[in-house]
Design a protein around this nucleic acid. Sequence first.
DNA 1: GCGTCTATCTATAAAAC
DNA 2: TGTTTTATAGATAGACG
Lengths: 125, 125
Amino acid sequence: MTRKKVKLAFITNESARKGTFKKRKKGLMKKVSELSTLCGIDACAIIYSPYEPHPEVWPNTLGVQRILAKFKRMPEMEQSKKMVNQETFIRQRIVKANEHLKKQHKDNREKEMTSHVPMFDWERA
Amino acid sequence: MTRKKVKLAFITNESARKGTFKKRKKGLMKKVSELSTLCGIDACAIIYSPYEPHPEVWPNTLGVQRILAKFKRMPEMEQSKKMVNQETFIRQRIVKANEHLKKQHKDNREKEMTSHVPMFDWERA
DNA sequence: GCGTCTATCTATAAAAC
DNA sequence: TGTTTTATAGATAGACG
């Protein structure tokens, strides 16, 4: 039951960070490729890193330039809508985590009537 | 007990394709987010789809615009290098092989005045 | 069709080379 | 330092409501 938990934070160990970067970049490129193929959609990814002098991209330079041009054509106002931005993403994860915790609390209470010790600030109040 | 075995090809069933798109887009955005956080690197992703009027991006519009500007600044010649793209990769290998062949031909001519028999179409012309 | 669940597959952290 | 291996966390296809 004890699970290995990868802390979602900057990896301070240099070699570990480089190793993780290499592996995850590969996995990410694969994911973009698969999404594009499976769903027939237009997508691109650009990754800058200290390990390469140039950004690594998917699918290729022309593909990125085409999307870049398309993106620039979109009016500024429109660009602000429907974005999957970091803040929204984090909020969603917090909401889900919270819901999951609540469910567990409920299950626990039902099973053993134990009280819950809050693990996060947002659980208080 | 059913075998999943996802065929890596366009999903023709519309609803299945939409469902897969939604799930995988979410997963992809998470991956970009994690890579950026864990390795402290600059990255972005842009996804166009028929399900949304606007592209969905990571991390946000400004982040994408910053990276695109950075990308545009890179000289055309440089952009052709170091791309993560199988086709490009193969092309680069072919180019390299070709250059190598030319060099050898030159060396050979200089040494023994032998003629070259083209192995590829592009060598003719 | 859309959100949730879960069995199963995939990605990857850590270990070992 | 990179590559391969392996055990586990994480992603997701199909099922269900």
